[in-house]
């Protein structure tokens, strides 16, 4: 009987040790630097340049331009947008701001990060950052929680002096995200991610299947962006691991408790074969 007890304690200890390990084994977004990072930026929501997470997009523009990019964010991610602005050699004090909008063009709040920054005259560059809230798989329609889909970034100068208007500036944008794991796994899910124009796109695809629509060539869509490994189905979360391990541990504890009170084996008084 001692063996059973020892075994159960070891199993318990093992289970407890294994649970957090399983919980923390989150797939880290590998920054893949290849040549496909865009070198331009759009000038409106409609023309926003699509950037994948983990890539550094560059763009040259003029002070006063509104530079737009879009990136995909999936459930469980907490995206961080960092923008770097290279200012011209001579300029007056300038304030720059980065704004993030979701797929419904609702402005999204930044939890941390310098969203607005002023560069004193003569400063060569400035850096802006915005850490968004964690993207949830579902929220009530009355909330403006971040949902999986397209996100827009707008970078612009606020309150420019006329002398600075139109001066050449360079911009860099990078989006990375932290995987928040099962702590952010909520119930419910959207049928389609919050990608603008997705209804039009899917109906066009349906037509294509019927064989009467051939608009594959350069047909413009509002947003064709998708994460590298597709939108998550929302089925897997590490809560399965936690709950499963919890069940196993409960069973083991149950056996332990039973063994403790029931005593070892059959009662001594009971004759064998009874």
């Amino acid at each position: 009987m001692r063996i059973t007890r020892v075994l159960s304690t070891t199993l318990l200890a093992f289970g407890l040790a294994a649970a957090p390990a399983a919980a923390d084994s989150t797939p880290s977004a590998s920054p893949s630097e290849d040549g496909s990072a865009p070198t331009t930026a759009g000038t409106s929501f409609r023309t926003a340049t699509e950037v994948d997470q983990g890539r550094t997009a560059t763009a040259s523009g003029s002070a006063g331009d509104y530079l737009y990019w879009s990136f995909p964010a999936d459930a469980g991610q907490r995206p961080t947008v960092t923008a770097k602005v290279k200012l011209p050699e001579e300029h007056a004090g300038q304030t720059w701001q980065v704004d993030v909008y979701d797929g419904l063009r609702r402005r999204q709040a930044c939890q941390y990060g310098a969203q607005t920054r002023t560069a004193a005259s003569g400063t060569a560059s400035l850096e802006l950052a915005c850490v968004l809230r964690t993207v949830r798989a579902w929220s009530e329609p009355w909330a403006d929680d971040p949902l999986p889909g397209t996100y827009y970034v707008r970078l612009t100068a606020l309150g420019l002096k006329t002398a600075d208007l139109g001066l050449p500036v360079g911009a860099e944008l990078r989006v990375d995200s932290k995987d928040m794991g099962g702590a952010a796994a909520v119930d419910g899910s959207l049928a389609e991610p919050l990608v603008p124009g997705i209804a039009v796109k899917s109906s066009a695809e349906d037509e294509g299947e019927d064989g009467d629509g051939d608009d594959s060539s350069a047909s413009a869509v509002l947003s064709s962006i998708e994460p590298d490994d597709g939108w998550s189905s929302g089925w897997w979360t590490d809560r399965w691991v936690w709950t499963g391990i919890g069940g196993v541990l409960a069973a083991l504890a149950g056996i332990g408790g039973y063994a403790l009170t029931r005593g070892p084996g059959r009662p001594r008084q009971v004759p064998p074969g009874a």
């Binding site: 119930d187 149950g254 408790g257």
Partner: peptide, 28 residues
């Protein structure tokens, strides 16, 4: 609130272990 109503965290494990243990004791 949670995905499929599943649980997560040390409190959950503790609660399950305690409940299991008590059930075992009772059964014993």
């Amino acid at each position: 609130v949670a995905s499929f109503g599943l649980g997560r965290g040390w409190w959950l494990l503790g609660a399950l272990v305690l409940a299991g243990f008590l059930a075992g004791v009772l059964w014993g």
